[in-house]
Design a protein around this nucleic acid. Structure first.
Lengths: 238, 238
DNA sequence: CGAAAAAAATGACTTTTATCAGTTTTGAGG
DNA sequence: CCTCAAAACTGATAAAAGTCATTTTTTTCG
C-alpha cells in the first residue's frame, strides 16, 4: 500500500489544544512543523512494530490506533487506544529502547511523524515542555498501576464494566440522556482490552444489554446506565 | 514508634552507584545531601499512604520496601519491591498527584527523604539528570506494560514461575550452582505479587519444589533450575 | 446482487483457580 | 522453655472463565 501524505500546519491543527505540544512557543512549534511528515493510514495498517527501534514520535491528527502486545499464542493485549491529539510511541523513544508493542489503525487515521532529533531538540531546549512530558508519562504510569491491580483482583464482569466506563469517559458522545462510545471496536478487540476471551465478552455484553445497562448501535455501544455499570465494576456487593 | 534518624553522606553512600543520583555533579549532590533527612524504619512500618500528597522523594539506603495497592476487599497487589539505591514515590511526585499506592517496610530499612523543592531544583538545573530520570520512568513503564500483558493472558502457574525468575534477577545471590532469592517474602506477599490467592501460591510452590525447580531455605527460596522454571513461565508447551 | 469470508452469537464441556474450613508448623515474646 | 498467634499447609467444593464446536448474522467485494 502506497503511503498517502497530507499536509497540515501545527499552529492550525484542531487537536493542538488536546496535545502536549499545546503551549509550545511559536519558534519550537515551527521547528516541529518543518520537520514533520504527515501520513494517512487505512484501517488495519501498522504504524510501528514490537521489537523495532523508534526513529521518531507519532502525533495523532485523526482516527484511532490500538497499541498492543502479542503473547506467544498470538493473543493480543491492548495497552491503550490513541485518539487525535495523543502522542504515539513516545515511551520507547524516551527510554531509548525497542518498541515493546505494536500499533495498528482501528479507524482510518492521519498521523504526523516527528523525527527523533527534532523532538529531542525541542525537549532539551524547553524545560517547561520537558516537565509537561514527564508529568504526562508519570500520569500514564499511574493509570497502568491502576490497571494492574484491577487485572489482578477483579472478575471479568467487573473489568468489562470498568472498561466500558473508561471508554465512555474517553470516547463518549453525549446524546438523549445517554452516552455513545464513539469507537467501532470488534468484540475481539474489546476482549483484548479487558484481558479475556472473545466469547466471554460477547456473553457479558448481552447480559449487560438484557439488564438494560447498555445498548448496541451498529458497531458501537451506548451506555444507558453508567451508575449501574459502575456498581457492576466496583464490586460494591460481591 | 519514635522515628530513628541516622546519618550518612551521599558522596560516601555505598548505593550511590546503583542510584539515579550517580553521576550528579558534586555541587548538586551536596545540595541533595544538605537537605535530606535519613530515617530508620522497622519491618511493618509505613513510608507513605495511598491517597496522600507527596512532599518529597524517598531514596533507599538499606532494607526492602513493598509498594502496593489495596482493593475494596482489602486484597493487596504489590506493584514493586524497592531495594537499596532505588527511588520511592517519584511517580506521584513528578506527576504532582496523590500517592496511588502505599509503601510498607518488608525488611528493616534505612531511607533518606529529599524534600520536593530540593529534588525539583536539581532536576531543573541539570538536564542530564532530568534525562536519566525520564529514561528510568519510561523504562519502568515498559516493565509495567509487560506485566499487564502477562497478567491478562498467563496462568497463575506461569506468572508464579515468571515472578520467581524476576525476583531471582533482582534479588538473587549466587552460590553453589544455584541462586538464593535474598528476600524474606511471606506466601501472602508472593501471592500479592503474582496476583492470586495465598493458597494457590502455596500449592504451586510445593509443586515446583517436588519437581526440583526450587528449594526452601528458611523464609527464602532458592532457584535450582532456572531454565526449567523459564519453561514453566514461557508457556513453550501449553 | 450474491457468494464468500469475517464477526457475532450460542451451547456444551473442561480447566483453572478462588473460597472456605480445618490442621499443622513456626516463631515471637514473656 | 512455654504459650499463643500468625503463617503455612491441606483438602473439599464451587464458581468463574476458557476452549471447542457449531450456527447465525453481518460485511466485503467481485
Amino acid at each position: 500500500m502506497a503511503k498517502v501524505e497530507f499536509n497540515i500546519v501545527c499552529t492550525l491543527c484542531e487537536h493542538l489544544k488536546d496535545s502536549l505540544f499545546n503551549g509550545l512557543n511559536p519558534e519550537d512549534l515551527s521547528r516541529i512543523n518543518n520537520h514533520k511528515t504527515c501520513i494517512q493510514y487505512k484501517k488495519g495498517q501498522n504504524i510501528f512494530y514490537e521489537g523495532t527501534r523508534p526513529t521518531g514520535l507519532y502525533c495523532m491528527n485523526g482516527g484511532k490506533v490500538k497499541v498492543y502486545k502479542n503473547n506467544v499464542q498470538g493473543k493480543e493485549f491492548i495497552i491503550y487506544i490513541a485518539k487525535p491529539g495523543d502522542f504515539l510511541g513516545y515511551r520507547a523513544l524516551l527510554s531509548e529502547e525497542f518498541y515493546q508493542a505494536t500499533a495498528t489503525v482501528l479507524e482510518d487515521a492521519k498521523i504526523c511523524f516527528i523525527p527523533k532529533e527534532s523532538f529531542f531538540e525541542v525537549l532539551q531546549k524547553n524545560p517547561l515542555f520537558m516537565k509537561r512530558v514527564v508529568q504526562a508519562v508519570c500520569h500514564e504510569m499511574g493509570i497502568m498501576e491502576e490497571k494492574l491491580a484491577e487485572l489482578a483482583h477483579k472478575s471479568v464482569r467487573e473489568r468489562l464494566a470498568a472498561n466500558l466506563l473508561m471508554l465512555k469517559e474517553t470516547y463518549g458522545m453525549e446524546g438523549d440522556g445517554s452516552t455513545l462510545i464513539d469507537l467501532a471496536l470488534s468484540r475481539e478487540d474489546l476482549a483484548s482490552i479487558v484481558g479475556t476471551a472473545t466469547e466471554t465478552v460477547i456473553r457479558l455484553l448481552s447480559e449487560f444489554k438484557s439488564e438494560g445497562l447498555i445498548a448496541f448501535e451498529g458497531k458501537k455501544i451506548r451506555v444507558l446506565e453508567p451508575k449501574k455499570l459502575a456498581k457492576q465494576a466496583d464490586l460494591i456487593i460481591a
